[in-house]
């Protein structure tokens, strides 16, 4: 299933947040969105996921979600959004219960996704007993368990320290290599963008417009930490963003 954005514009009262964004989100690829603070990345992701209505333009699905998909557009949140009163297992179970999956079938699905995300030992733990990286792993497991057509990830690693971030990036790449999923991945970390993105969309400062779409052809599994091949695209992204980021920064001070 592909997602097609046509001429999306959005404004909150007087603030124009984004302008005329048209974008193709191809399936089984990771599309990163980078842009200066406040340029509307999170808003765009909410629009794609149907949590917000754009002022103008349309989000369309092309084709049907894959077989066994329970929730086509699935979020991974920056702050994990785990229910503190449910165990790891319970948090994953939450999103299955509403689809009438119960009993032994539910247990086996949960066990499988916990194994895939290396969480099997933590099934009975409560979120507060877990480190940040573990919590985000649970959130990723919860997103994977519904077999999403598209994963919408809003700075999923921003709340984590840089070592944990590296580990989770490796995990994401391993998960993707095993079964390629479609993802829209918002970040302001350019290193993350070049590690995970097949395509990187650079947005301008507010009102956000697409400045450029950078393609990186090297397969995900071959990209490594400090990969020299990724240096050039990362530098290019930074050149594109530097002026925007500086201007956005100055703008925020004047508000």
């Amino acid at each position: 299933m592909d997602i097609h954005l046509s001429n999306i514009s959005h404004r909150y009262d007087a603030t124009e947040v984004m302008r005329d964004i048209s974008l193709e989100i191809p399936s089984s690829r990771i599309l990163c969105i980078v842009g200066p603070s406040g340029c509307g990345k999170s808003t765009l992701l909410r629009i794609i996921g149907g949590l917000e209505r754009p002022s103008a333009g349309e989000v369309g699905q092309i084709g049907d979600p894959p077989e066994g998909c329970l929730n086509p557009l699935t979020y991974v949140f920056q702050d994990f959004a785990l229910l503190p009163w449910r165990t790891v297992e319970g948090n994953i179970s939450l999103v299955l219960e509403d689809h009438g999956i119960d009993g032994a079938k539910k247990q086996s699905i949960i066990a499988d996704v916990l194994a895939r995300t290396k969480l099997s030992d933590f099934a009975k733990a409560l979120p507060k007993q877990l480190s940040g990286g573990m919590k985000q792993r649970v959130a990723i497991a919860r997103a994977l368990v519904v077999n999403p057509a598209v994963m919408l990830m809003d700075e999923p690693l921003s709340a984590l320290d840089s070592q944990t971030r590296e580990l989770l990036m490796d995990d994401l790449i391993a998960l993707w290599t095993r079964t390629p999923f479609t993802a829209v991945y918002v970040t302001h970390n350019l290193a993350e963008a070049v590690r995970l993105g097949h395509q990187i969309v650079v947005l301008s400062r507010r009102p956000g417009e697409i400045r450029e779409i950078v393609e990186i052809d090297k397969p995900l599994s071959e990209r490594t930490f400090g990969d020299p091949d990724l240096e050039a695209p990362q530098r290019h992204l930074w050149d594109l963003m530097r002026e925007e980021a500086r201007a956005a920064d100055a703008e925020l001070i004047h508000v």
Binding site: G49, L83, W85, L94
Partner: peptide, 25 residues
């Protein structure tokens, strides 16, 4: 509220959100 948005983003029914997120919270 982020927990409620999470529930909505996973397509939970209104009643499930009230029962499993709002009330325990």
């Amino acid at each position: 509220r982020t927990l409620i948005r999470m529930g909505q983003s996973f397509g939970l029914s209104w009643w499930s959100i009230v029962r499993k997120i709002v009330l325990p919270g």
